[in-house]
């Protein structure tokens, strides 16, 4: 859906320095962050509290003034209002004017986003249904639970049919069904060509939906890239086989490591380049290959290990 051929979101050299008026020293919340998000992908932004994720997103959306850096969405300077017209944003724990009814709130945001008058009603109805709030159009927002406000936050982010959506902790406060709905919604958005930048603490959510990730720590990019490539850190493949009652064939045994045998199933890992030879050897020995999967770190383990190596402090804003 993007008109430009470049990245849907481009952040280059993002830097934010907070200068207290008196007393306390200057603090760099974000230091030279580069993020590039390809069109039609879901890009995860990860990091512990204080990593600078929220500050980076706020700079991208013109809510915080960058000290330095370039911020572009669909090729336009997103720190300027006109550069944000094709963007949907759901802040962490979205708040709304409490006196409004749900449909009134969506109408307000639709008007602000320049949605044609005759399209506001149908879009409101469709979005309320899409986020699971059908029948709540006339409920005032002070009667909404946190999860319902979260769902409405997603609806307002989509009211202008954006080409780029920035979601800050979209599943926060949702029950497991709600979290699944949000995950499916993000996948649907990607299917329809929408680019999603997802900031989240929920690693399982990121692992389930993201194509690429940027991991931040202490205001810096600690790691970035394709999730599979990041987690397949050891270049090894895990193989499960059945029918090798006599143990692993000698050719396999000398290549395999981390061997475990339970209930007639042998599980072991081998270097990626030896997979073909190992499978042939298992076949020759009369065994049956059950699965061949790349050895992946869990995102949790990878995340924890990465953060341990970048131990400088910082505070998220």
């Amino acid at each position: 859906m993007s008109e430009s051929n470049g990245p849907a979101i481009l952040i280059r050299g993002a830097h934010k320095r907070y200068k207290p008026i008196v007393g306390a020293p200057q603090r760099d919340a974000v230091r030279g962050v580069d993020i590039s998000v390809a069109p039609g992908t879901i890009h995860g932004l990860l990091g512990p509290n204080g990593a600078g994720k929220t500050t980076t997103i706020k700079m991208l959306l013109g809510l915080v003034r960058p000290t330095a850096g370039e911020f572009r969405i669909l090729g336009e300077d997103s720190t300027r209002p006109e550069g944000r017209r094709r963007v949907g944003f759901m802040p962490e724990q979205p708040y709304f004017p409490q006196h409004l009814r749900a449909a009134q709130a969506l109408r307000l945001y639709a008007q602000l986003a320049g949605v044609p008058r005759d399209e506001i009603g149908p879009r409101t109805t469709a979005l309320m249904e899409r986020v699971g709030l059908q029948g709540r159009e006339k409920t005032t927002l002070d009667a909404f639970s946190r999860g319902m406000l979260q769902r409405l936050g997603i609806a307002q982010a989509l009211i202008n049919q954006p080409e780029v959506v920035v979601l800050d902790e979209p599943a926060s406060g949702l029950d497991p069904v709600g979290q699944r709905d949000v995950r499916n919604l993000m996948l649907e958005l990607r299917e329809s060509g929408v680019t999603v930048l997802l900031s989240s603490h929920q690693l399982s959510e990121v692992e389930a939906v993201c194509d690429d990730v940027t991991i931040m720590n202490a205001g810096l990019v600690a790691a970035e890239g394709d999730l599979d490539a990041l987690l397949n850190v050891e270049g090894r493949t895990s193989i499960r086989v059945r029918g090798l009652e006599g143990g692993l064939p000698a050719r396999v045994a000398e290549l395999a490591s981390e061997v475990a045998v339970t209930g007639g199933v042998s599980v072991f890992s081998v270097a990626d380049e030896t997979v073909r030879a190992v499978i042939d050897a298992v076949d020759d020995a009369g065994g049956r290959v059950v699965s061949v999967t790349p050895v992946r770190d869990s995102l949790e383990d990878y995340f924890a290990r990465l953060l341990a190596t970048t131990a400088e402090g910082g505070e998220d804003r």
Partner: peptide
């Protein structure tokens, strides 16, 4: 403080508006 302004400004509304 309640961050309702985020939803408004992110819609391409300028701070002046």
């Amino acid at each position: 403080e309640r961050r309702t302004v985020y939803n408004v400004l992110a819609k391409g509304v300028s701070r002046a508006e």
